[in-house]
Amino acid sequence: MDLLTDDGLPMSQRSSEGVARIVRRAILDGRLQPGQPLRERALAEELGISRTPIREALFILQGEGLVGMTPNRGATVRTITATDISEIYSVRTLLESHAAALAAGRITERELAALDEAHGRIERLNDHATPQEQAEADLKLHGLIADAAGSQLLRTILGQVHAFTATYRSRYPYPPDQLRRANAQHEAIIMALRDHDAERAEQLMREHVGDSRALALRHFTENEPTQATR
C-alpha cells in the first residue's frame, strides 16, 4: 500500500493515533481509494507493528467517517455519496456558524493573529496549489475559529467533521474565481470576529459554508454521476 512515512518515530513505536494519521493521509492524498480494503494483517506487516494498534486506528477512522466496517468483510475506505456531502455540510453550517458566534465573544489578539496568518497562507496559494494543499489551508483556518470558540466538545466534534470533509475536498481544486470568493468571505468573517460582532460572524460563516456545500455538490454531480443519485 506504500504507507510508510518519514516523520519521526520508528514504526515499531507507532500508537493507534499514529497509525490513524498515516492511513488518514493515504486516504486524503489518494493512495488509498474509495472502496479499497484495509486488511489488518497487510497493514500490520507493512508498518511493522502488531494488529492491535491497526484495529484501534481503523475504529478511529470509522468514527471520522473515513472508513467503513462491514461484518465478515472488514474495513474499507468509505465511498462518499452526494447524500454524505449534503449532510456533512449541513452539520458544518450549524456547528461552524455557532462556533463563529462563540468565538466573536471571546477571541484574543493572539488568536486573531493566528487567523490572519492562516488567511495569508490561503491568499498565497496560487493556481498550481494541489487540492489537498487548498483543503488543508482552508480547514486550518476553520479549525482556528473553532479553537477560539472555547468549547472542547465543539472542537472535538468539528475535528471529526473536518476530517470527513477533507476526504472529498482534497479531490478537487477550487477554481480561481471561487478561491477569490472564499478568501473574501474569510476576510469578512475575521473582520466580524475582530469587531466582536457575533451575529454578523455567525451569518457570514453560514453563507460561506453554504457556498462550499454548493460547490462540492456541483463537482460531485459533474464528476461522479454514478454516485450522485445514491
Results as ranks from 00 to 15, higher is better:
D6V: 07
S12R: 06
S12G: 03
E17T: 13
R21V: 04
I22G: 07
I27H: 03
L28P: 05
G30L: 03
G30N: 06
P37S: 11
P37G: 02
R39W: 09
E46T: 09
E46G: 06
S50E: 13
I54G: 03
E56W: 03
L58K: 10
F59M: 02
E64S: 08
G65N: 09
L66R: 00
V67A: 06
V67C: 04
G68A: 08
G68K: 11
A75M: 05
T79M: 11
T81I: 11
T83N: 15
D84Q: 12
Y89W: 15
Y89F: 15
V91Q: 15
V91G: 09
R92A: 15
R92C: 13
L94I: 14
L95A: 04
A100R: 01
L102T: 00
A103G: 04
R106W: 05
E111Q: 14
E111R: 06
D116E: 11
G120R: 11
N126D: 13
H128M: 12
A135Y: 03
E136N: 02
A148G: 07
G150S: 07
S151M: 04
L153C: 03
L154E: 14
R155E: 14
R155G: 10
V161W: 10
P176R: 09
L179N: 08
R181Y: 00
A184G: 06
H186V: 02
M191I: 05
A192V: 06
Q203F: 01
M205C: 04
M205P: 01
R206W: 09
G210Y: 05
S212E: 14
A216T: 09
A216S: 07
R218V: 06
F220K: 05
F220S: 12
T221Q: 15
T221V: 12
T221I: 14
E224W: 12
T226F: 08
T226A: 11
Q227F: 11
A228Q: 14
